[in-house]
Design a protein around this nucleic acid. Structure first.
Length: 152
DNA sequence: GCCAACGTTGGC
DNA sequence: GCCAACGTTGGC
């Protein structure tokens, strides 16, 4: 099993939005970055766990956990000209972008802020604390996962 | 709102 | 294949 971190702008899709979704599940659409796509398409397995991270907002940080509940499959929003993530270069016969389903696991009683993550020496190798990191999906090491759960 | 850092595009 | 220009991300 592998651990991940999923970034989302809460003004776009927050952990509360996930909680209010049918079956507390959503498809993680809109990823238009090859590295992040490769993580989903090639490495994610049903049962993997992920942190839900709120980016670009008042209180950035980890707000809960999710479970990956599907294998990857083509991101159909890339085929829809009316969708904001439309990509004419993604051909339904040869899809360029993929997504997985994620289901809410836990909503933390508080936000584990980016500042806290940065201040923990145990987490200094985490990609999300690195300056300029823009990857919306990043792998998390098991010891980092456990350490962060201990911060809640 | 600012701007640094990054990924992608496209001319050559 | 290089790299400048551009658009986007995301912290502050």
């Amino acid at each position: 099993m592998t651990y991940w971190l999923f970034k989302s702008e809460p003004s776009c899709f927050s952990i509360d939005d996930l909680k209010n979704s049918a079956k507390k599940t959503t498809h993680w659409d809109g990823v238009r970055n090859y590295q992040a796509r490769n993580f989903m398409r090639d490495q994610m397995q049903i049962g993997d766990k992920g942190f839900f991270y709120h980016s670009n907002c008042k209180e950035t940080g980890i707000v809960g956990t999710v479970t990956i509940t599907s294998a990857s499959y083509p991101d159909h929003t890339a085929f829809d000209p009316d969708d904001e993530h439309y990509d004419p270069k993604s051909d339904p016969d040869n899809p360029r972008w993929f997504m997985v389903d994620v289901t809410l696991d836990k909503v933390f009683p508080r936000v584990i802020t980016l500042a806290e993550l940065k201040s923990a020496p145990e987490l200094e190798s985490m990609l999300v604390v690195r300056k300029g990191n823009r990857l919306s999906i990043t792998p998390v090491q098991e010891d980092e996962w456990d350490f962060i759960l201990g911060m809640v």
